[in-house]
Each structure stands twice: as structure tokens, then as C-alpha cells.
Amino acid sequence: MMNYHLWLGFVAASIVMGLVPGPGVLSIIGYAVSSGTRTALASVAGMAVGNICAMTLSLAGVGALLASSAAAFTLLKWAGALYLIGLGVLAIRRSHMDATDKDVILKPISARLAFRSNILIGVFHPKTIVFFVAFTPQFIDVHYAYWPQAILLIFTFTVVVGITDALYALTAARARTLLVSPRAKIWMGRAGGGALVAAGAATLMTKN
């Protein structure tokens, strides 16, 4: 189906990619800190779906189009970044309301919203799509059929990065549960919102 040594090399590279924090990891940490474990793990699942879509689009040739079109790249970058920043600002405002109005009971960001949001972040983060175009072909063996290898690489990357993302989510959520006082929860909400804003800013700083 594919070269075993190439596949092991891809696994190692995927582990490195998963451990290096990027906008996706920042968004997951933001959800974990602001809204807890359930929401964070839902965001991990959403990111996994987004990664599957991004890799599939890349290997189907869409990444090459983005790499050659500055306008399309910029449009997707701004859309994803503004969405993340908007969610972060919302989380910060909610924590401020909690601090100023003791009668207001604020709900955390729902798991469903986090799941949907991170699908969009995974799919519409143009740097990821373009990166896959340059990165993945190095692990394709021309002596084997293309799409079976591509599907295996998509599955491998999704599983490996899903595991590293889940570790980030659980660690951040654990840190949140250790701070149980109302004031600490307010600041954790603000920190989570700040992480989402930072993820949006990191997306804006990517270059084609």
C-alpha cells in the first residue's frame, strides 16, 4: 500500500507538528480554560474533522490554488482569524459580566459551538492547506497507488494530532479545575478568551 519507512517518517513528523502550538492548539486551550473539559474535547473533535477536510482539499489540489492566489489565501485567513477573535472577545466580555453582576449566571461556551467552530478553523486555516501541499507529497511513494497512500496519511495525521490536541485540552482543563474560587474562574475565563484572541492573531500573521 505504501513504503513502511516513509510512513514512520510521516508519523514522527506529525508528532512534531502536533506538539508545536499553533492557532488550533491555542483555540483548544482557550476553550478548556474558559469552558472546561467537555467543551475542550469537543473542540479537539472539531479540529480533527477540520484537519481531515483540509488534508483532503490539499491532496485534491485546492492547496496549490491557494498557494498561487494571494486573494483567496488572504480571504480565508481573515475569515478564520476574525471568527476566533470574535469568540475570544465574547468569552472576555462574559467573564467581565460575571465580575460586575453577581445575579448573572453565565453558561460556558457549549460543546456543540466549540465543535463547529474548530471544524471551520481547521478547514479555513489556509496555511495548513498550503503546508500539506508542500509537506505530504514527500511521503508518497510513486511505486504505489496515490489515493490509498493519501487516505492512510490523512488518517495517520488526524489520529496523531488528535492525541496531542487532547493532551493539551486535558492539561488546560485540569489547570482550570484546580482554581475553584469565583475570582479565579473569572480570570480563567478571561485567559481563555485571550487565548482565542491570540489564536486569531497568530492566524493573521501567517504569510503565503
Rank of each mutant, 00 (worst) to 15 (best):
M2D: 05
L6I: 00
L8H: 08
L8I: 13
G9D: 04
F10I: 06
V11A: 01
A12G: 10
A12L: 13
A13C: 08
A13Q: 09
A13I: 08
I15K: 04
G18P: 04
V20T: 07
G22S: 05
P23W: 00
G24F: 00
S27G: 13
I28H: 09
I29E: 06
G30Y: 00
G30N: 10
A32I: 10
S34F: 04
T37A: 04
T37C: 02
L41K: 03
S43N: 05
V44A: 01
V44W: 01
A45T: 08
A45N: 00
A45S: 09
M47H: 11
V49Y: 05
V49T: 14
N51L: 15
I52N: 11
L57S: 04
S58N: 01
L59P: 06
A60C: 10
G61I: 14
V62N: 02
A67N: 14
S69E: 10
A70R: 13
A72Y: 13
A72P: 08
F73D: 02
L75A: 15
A79W: 06
Y83W: 13
L84V: 02
L87K: 00
A91M: 15
I92S: 07
R94K: 15
S95W: 09
S95K: 08
M97K: 13
M97L: 15
D98A: 15
D101T: 05
D101E: 13
K102P: 03
D103A: 09
V104Y: 15
V104C: 11
L106F: 03
K107E: 11
S110K: 05
S110N: 11
R112Q: 15
A114T: 06
F115Q: 02
R116H: 13
N118P: 00
L120K: 12
L120S: 13
G122Y: 07
G122R: 08
V123A: 13
H125S: 12
K127G: 15
T128S: 14
I129D: 08
I129K: 03
F131A: 09
F131G: 11
F135D: 11
F135N: 07
T136I: 14
T136G: 08
Q138H: 14
D141A: 09
D141E: 05
V142E: 12
V142T: 14
H143M: 07
Y144P: 02
Y146E: 06
A150L: 07
F157M: 06
F157L: 10
V160W: 04
V161C: 06
G162L: 01
I163G: 01
I163E: 01
T164H: 02
T164E: 00
D165A: 06
L167Q: 02
Y168C: 06
A169C: 03
T171F: 10
A172D: 05
A172R: 03
A172F: 09
A173Y: 04
R174E: 05
R174D: 02
R176M: 08
T177C: 14
T177Y: 13
L179K: 04
S181C: 06
P182D: 13
A184W: 04
K185R: 15
W187T: 12
R190V: 01
A191T: 15
G192A: 03
V197S: 00
A198W: 14
A199E: 03
L204I: 09
T206K: 07
T206N: 11
K207P: 04
N208C: 07
